[in-house]
Amino acid sequence: MALKVRSFFAPAAPVENPDQVFLRQGTEMYGEGVALRVSARGTNRISELSSQFQKIAAESEIQDDVRLAGSGLFGFVSITFAADSEFESAVVIPAKLTVIRDGVSFVTEISEVPEKPLKKTPSGVFLQGDQSATGFIEATKTAIARINESALEKVVLARDLVMPLSGEPDLQPAIQRLYARYPHCWTYLVEDNFGASPELLLRAETGEVSARVLAGTAGRGTDPDVDRAIAEGLKHSTKNQHEHKFAVESLVQTLSSVCENLETDEEPFSLALPDLWHLATDVRGRLKSNVTLLDAVELLHPTAAVAGTPRLPAQALISELEPFDRGGYAGPVGWITADGSGELAIALRGGRIEREPALQIRAFAGCGIVAESDPEAELAETELKFKAVRYAFGS
């Protein structure tokens, strides 16, 4: 479908009730309405979305007076974790996009923005979901046993919480709370998926790519000296170093087939968030010619940080032990443009709106399980990770 796309500089102005957002300190992207949505399911869902978006770009009339990352034909992206998910993966091209970056603002217009339906701010408490705390502990024990008796080295298991809703929710207050509390995370609302992810899957601009691997977690201390000791302990924890190494090696091995000049941090660093410490490693490189951002993402997803290693046995065990469909949780989420730029985080520290069989919010939190894992400690880690979504809704 041919679209008429126009990007132009415009004074920064508040966007009331955007339909899609992608926010991080220094960059705010707000989408209003939907000019076009393309979707896909199954094993080839990422390549199908890439092909559809490239076709739209080739057919569209694009007037880009801005020529910065994010201008021109733009699409918000949400991709499911699993190929067999009942949920769709999609690229959503907004009717109007407002971008505010480091004091510079511009707008992309494609079509009229429709009137927005009335929504209400969600309230309530999160209840145990399909995977109870007891069920998660038992699943973790099973995973450890499988790791000890097979070639499986790591699997990432999640549990869920649900909040029943009485009407179509307005997520903007929750999104703004997340953005204010976690400014260095990637705060997102795309399709029905939302959260504040600390993990960048892949960013591309003029062919240069970067990624951030997170694996290994500890809670923050209330006393500064204790907090520093926790960060040091995390860096020297055998279990967490083991888990982190798997995630980094998996990402580098995969990226090496589509990238040149790959570089990684020599040692992981401790990344501080308001509630947690994470072990983190940054990776940088350059995409080979004729390789798109979504081409690379298709190879990378799911990473060892959200699935496990080896990947296929880990995915099979997730499917066996998790009694829910992850949908967009732990899948790529972010944006792409016609010129090849884009930024895709991993959809973490949040959840999704569900409408069937009942209207509710389902939140997710997961942990990397390795041979040294302790089930009770892994359960406690999920509670730490749920702090973000509980804070967002004041629950």
Rank of each mutant, 00 (worst) to 15 (best):
P11V: 07
V15Y: 03
G31W: 02
E32Q: 15
L36I: 01
R41P: 00
R41H: 14
A58N: 11
S60W: 04
R67P: 00
L68Q: 12
G72E: 01
A82T: 08
S89N: 10
P94N: 10
P94S: 12
I100V: 14
G103P: 06
T108Y: 10
E109W: 03
P114E: 08
E115Y: 08
T121F: 01
T121V: 15
L127E: 14
T134M: 09
E138M: 12
T140K: 02
I144N: 04
A145E: 14
I147T: 12
N148T: 09
E149R: 07
A151Y: 00
K154G: 12
L157H: 02
D160R: 05
L165V: 11
E168W: 06
L178W: 02
L178N: 00
Y179G: 02
A180R: 08
Y182C: 08
H184K: 04
Y188L: 12
L189Q: 11
P198D: 09
R203S: 14
A204R: 04
T206K: 14
S210L: 08
E232H: 12
E243S: 09
L279F: 12
A280E: 02
V283D: 00
R286S: 15
L287Y: 08
L287D: 03
K288A: 14
D295N: 14
V297N: 01
L299E: 07
G308F: 09
L312R: 04
L312I: 15
Q315Y: 03
I318G: 01
L321P: 00
I336A: 06
L344V: 12
G350H: 10
I353S: 02
R355P: 00
L359V: 13
E378H: 07
A380M: 06
E381K: 04
K385R: 03
F393V: 05
